[in-house]
């Protein structure tokens, strides 16, 4: 005698599955590794002759002490102003003799252009907090990126981050180098 097997109504299973799907879609953060990429200076060869000294007007000293106080070119500065001060140093719009020299360079796609010889020297203490250090690195990078954006808009009509042609990217990178030097560690106290 054939008995009819009861069937379970599974029609709502799809709804449950979709509910789950949407829940995970909303809550999953796709973990992309982002960060500030830097090149460390190569190790110092003790036998090599010391590098030629850089002229004082070309060096922009940014110093963070162990109480996370920021000192820029000998003056205590708040981090909010760091970006503008850095931009003014690198651009040197009024050819101030205390700010860095510029040299004229021939760069493909840009023609003859002034390249700043300024170098940012970032110094920190062993007691500086990592958070502050990254904030300072971030502001310095932001200053350089803003200058690159401005130059890119002027010459190519779009922001630096929107450039896709590698040659144009290299040209801008050459014209506005990411010249951040991390000093040899030393205790600057404070």
């Amino acid at each position: 005698m054939a008995r009819m097997r009861p069937e379970i109504n599974a029609g709502s299973m799809a709804d449950i599955a979709f509910l789950l799907l949407i829940f995970f879609l909303v809550t999953t953060t796709m973990d992309v590794d982002v960060g500030i990429t830097r090149m460390l200076p190569p190790p110092i060869d003790p036998n090599a002759p010391p590098p030629p000294p850089v002229r004082e007007r070309n060096v922009f000293v940014v110093l963070v002490d162990r109480h996370d106080r920021l000192m820029v070119e000998g003056q205590i500065t708040s981090i909010d102003r760091l970006r503008d001060v850095t931009k003014e140093f690198l651009l040197n719009p009024y050819d101030d003799p205390s700010k860095p020299e510029k040299r004229i360079e021939e760069i493909p796609h840009l023609g003859e252009i002034e390249v700043s010889r300024g170098i940012i020297s970032l110094q920190n203490d062993r007691g500086t907090s990592y958070e502050m250090y990254i904030s300072v690195q971030n502001e310095l990078a932001a200053a350089i990126n803003e200058i690159r954006d401005e130059m890119s808009k002027e010459h190519f009509g779009m922001k630096f981050s929107d450039l896709r042609d590698q040659e144009l990217i290299d040209a801008i990178r050459h014209a506005v180098p990411m010249a951040i030097s991390e000093a040899e560690p030393k205790d600057i106290g404070g």
Binding site: G35, I36, T37, P41, H67, D68, M132
Partner: peptide
Amino acid sequence: LRINYSTARGEVPASPRR
């Protein structure tokens, strides 16, 4: 020599520690 300081994407808080 190639390093990457891993960070989270977002605004820097106004003034850390202080």
